[in-house]
Nucleic acid binder design. Structure first.
Lengths: 258, 258
DNA sequence: ACGGCCGTTCAGAGGATTCTCAGAGGAATC
DNA sequence: GATTCCTCTGAGAATCCTCTGAACGGCCGT
């Protein structure tokens, strides 16, 4: 996803074609349902494409009133909710949502500087927020966290990712290789998480950029190479490498044997 | 839960896990039931979100009459009750509640300057109160205390929190590290309690603020950093540190080894 | 073999985040 | 009413993170 100078959003085809990976499912086995509420159609569209790609059922609403209307018959498990809506305020929407679907998770989208004021109290329960501009991986990760804690976790792996002897604990934000604790910066962590969520799948630099970096990032794909090199120094330094370059295409992470 | 290639699902029992780790359950194993009674919708919403997140079943009422009505069919174990209700006085509600559910615990919410002697009578009866504006952790702690004394403690944990050689006795309000008694101010204590209730889980500054500070606190997340630094001076000064900064995210408390 | 392209790495500027100190103001206590 | 203690603000310093630019080396075509 790229944010053009004119405010348009481009979505690369790649983003909507590959098969789903993650396994968050409702207790009854049906797919997770997410309602996206944002008055920017482009952003809402990109978000819903990514969530759908995650294997979830998605609906979109452009304002508070239609969000409530949709929620009533869609009964989502989670709602991605922009606090700046044209009609009803975000917190009001939250309250009315809760009145109808008490256990629903809400992920707020908010401007960076509007945080402290209106958002007070929302992280106190299970809910969470993400500040604009965000990266798609960040939104996904937060949403997965919310849903996992809401009882839609898949067996055993409660937010743990494993590739060979490399292990990531998302809650504790800990990464270990062969038991050795590895210290990562936020961007390194998010890049590695994206790789580990797609093991054995070659990821293009463009796609990595789209997912891991914020949508308003104007830089070049060179950063990806740079951060891959940082990661390699930290996790592939003294052991058979897990991160592999696929020349002219991108990068893969996979266990040493295969 | 495993998702087979043919679309089948296997569900194991342990997957249906509750989010946090409170360990308070009814004798018959069903979740604790709490009724929140407050005429401020925002406050009631935040309270119920927090309690629900704690794994309890929650109902909300906006005035005394509907509180009594709801209590009749909900049969709560505890009631969080604002003394200032639009219709019936809090004490009257208490009396009528007791008439129907004799063993119910009641936590009063009251203004700071409320009459002290009446409150004294309340605490004598086993109930408790919290003055507005309160922190959510305070409400939770008091509620846990009430419920524990009402016989809903799960075996083992009697209000003691342990992380490595750091021990907190919630009832005695005592903290020791390696046997050494540590003196904490009220805010320091509450911050540490929140950390110790969530060991190995990274807590964002926003979340800490929402939980540990009063809901009307208008300040910045900077206070959290400040109080973390106070805690470190008292707890982590001359021993392997337990409190760790996760840059760009928040803080974690965890035993020294891992 | 040569040259262009791609990927890797280094070095450093600039920015963001976090830590700590000092002190004002207020609450609690005696 | 005075004292002590606690909480919070503001500012500066220290630390850490991100990204740019450039140099280097290998891969692949011709």
């Amino acid at each position: 996803m790229r944010c053009g100078a004119d405010g348009t959003l481009e979505v690369t085809m790649e983003e909507i074609t590959a098969p789903p990976v993650t396994g968050l499912v409702r207790p009854d086995g049906t797919p997770v349902r997410v309602l996206v509420v944002d008055d920017e159609p482009d952003l809402a569209e990109v978000l819903s494409a990514v969530l759908r790609y995650e294997g979830w059922q998605v609906r979109v609403a452009g304002d508070g009133a239609s969000a409530l209307r949709t929620a009533r018959e869609f009964t989502p498990d989670a709602v991605v909710l922009d606090v700046m809506l044209p009609d009803i305020g975000g917190l009001e929407v939250l309250r009315r949502l809760r009145a109808e679907i008490p256990q629903v998770c809400v992920l707020f989208l908010t401007a960076r500087d509007a945080v402290e004021d209106r958002i007070a109290g929302i992280t106190a329960g299970g809910d969470d927020y993400v500040t604009k501009p965000f990266s798609l991986e960040e939104v996904l990760a937060r949403l997965r966290g919310l849903l996992r804690r809401a009882g839609m976790a898949r067996a055993g792996e409660g937010g743990r990712l494993v590739v060979g002897d490399l292990v990531m604990d998302e809650d504790a934000r800990e990464v270990t290789r062969a038991g050795q604790l590895i210290d990562l910066t936020p961007t390194e962590f998010e890049l590695l998480r994206f790789l580990m969520r797609n093991p054995r799948r070659v990821l293009s630099k463009a796609r990595i950029l789209d997912r891991v970096w914020s949508y308003d990032f104007g830089g070049q794909a060179h950063v990806v190479e740079l951060y891959i090199s940082y990661l390699r120094k930290k996790i592939d330094a003294e052991a058979p490498p897990l991160i592999h370059t696929v020349r002219g295409v991108g990068y893969v992470i996979k266990p040493a044997s295969g």
